[in-house]
Design a protein around this nucleic acid. Structure first.
Lengths: 239, 239
DNA sequence: ACCTGAACACCGTTCAAGT
DNA sequence: ACCTGAACACCGTTCAAGT
């Protein structure tokens, strides 16, 4: 599998023989590094150090940093594999697909930063799009409606959204919370009312700018229901 | 207004007296620089050079680069000012607000990159949120529904969305287009069908990862219509 | 022919030396 | 006291020197 000198010796405390540098190993290490230290901390030199190679060795396997990130994104996107039983209604199937993507994104919070810099669609991206479009088309939706639906889903297809609300969690200290509320009350009473109405548990937050599970599913269902409604009422493009 | 030595001399070919360095002048120049060269090219040294000052002079007015970007974002967001006549229906008013934001974003394509790194909500951000929440609340929507609506709108409140489709425009050369279509046809027939069904003019594109006017408004109306429907049918939180 | 260390052209930011 | 140039610790990437 790896190089000719690999053999065993995996459990040695300090093996003098390091595993052969492959693209797979680079990507796995880079993804782990990004998971641990965040997207901003991902750079060529620390990555090379963790792989126990000289930085330039990476350039044998990727052209540059952008390509590295693209391949990392592809590797993660490829791991999205919802099992949708044949015959499932298109709306349920679409929902399952999106929530499967979201599950993967929750494990890799840097993805929403990395995916946005992508320029052209890779085969992996096209595969995911193809699967969703086919789901909707085989559900009977028109070509035009499916096209709009894909745009309306936007990044939700990949399991994340960009948020309007600040990502900073509310202060846990009751006194600090009261002070913050008092400041809001003067100039932003409606924001305060809205913020106070719901106390989300912040466990399921993907990352800065991304929302929690309840809100994600609410918006997802809102879009899918809207598409279904247009489909059932025989919507067709106005132009 | 500016420094005590400003006076006239503005039309001199090379005035030895440069205008006083103020935060406003830094932000205006930084925004213009980002508009022209893109978000990635915005850095302290070129910005200082354009302002004809030494890089360190910037640090008298902003703590660091993050604060500079935050203030740039604030300056642009503050320029969003939809004129909504009193008595306008909440849905039309919300639509006007979002499309006003979008108009500003089209002039500053780097905004969607800059806004996402923001950590805590500034007064300007709170002002915009307050205005939208008030619009919806005064329209009669419940606190809980408004909260969900704000999350469902997500970054659309700021006039942009993240896209699923590749930003790369289709090849203009007919021969290259045919070749691309042939490649898609084999493995991604539904993607091809969907892509071929609509030929967007790419004039109104905000930036990589952002959609065009038609798709933006379709999704916006889908969300607003969905919210209206929930409101009219007396939706209330299930938990 | 292959690998790699030094070097290049950047970056944000610190800090001490200069006026 | 104020301003600023050099310097520090990075970054991605090039390239020539070494084996």
């Amino acid at each position: 599998m790896s190089g000719p000198v690999a053999a065993r010796g995996d459990d040695a405390v300090e093996s003098p023989r390091r595993a052969a540098l492959t693209l797979d190993r680079i990507l796995a290490t880079a993804i782990a590094l990004a998971d641990e230290t965040g997207y901003d901390a991902l750079s060529m030199r620390p990555l090379a150090e963790r792989l126990d190679v000289v930085p330039m060795a990476l350039y044998k396997h990727v052209r540059n940093r952008d390509e590295l990130v693209d391949r990392m994104v592809d590797a993660v996107l490829a791991s999205i594999s919802p099992d949708v039983e044949p015959g499932t209604h298109w709306k349920a199937a679409a929902r399952r697909r999106v929530l499967a993507a979201r599950g993967v994104m929750l494990r890799h919070p840097w993805m929403w930063r990395a995916i946005e810099t992508r320029t052209s669609p890779s085969p992996v991206v096209l595969d995911q799009q193809e699967a969703m479009i086919r789901t909707l088309r085989e559900g009977g939706l028109s070509v035009a409606l499916v096209h709009h639906a894909m745009h309306a889903l936007g990044s939700r297809l990949w399991g994340f959204t960009q948020e309007v609300y600040a990502s900073a969690p509310p202060p846990t200290d009751p006194q600090a919370l009261a002070a913050a509320a008092a400041m809001l009350a003067q100039r932003w009473p409606y924001v305060l009312e809205s913020a106070a109405s719901v106390m989300h548990d912040s466990d399921s937050i993907v990352g800065p700018g991304c929302d929690d599970e309840t809100e994600f599913e609410f918006a997802l269902d809102l879009i899918l229901d809207g598409i279904e409604r247009l489909h059932e009422t025989g919507w067709s493009p106005s132009r």
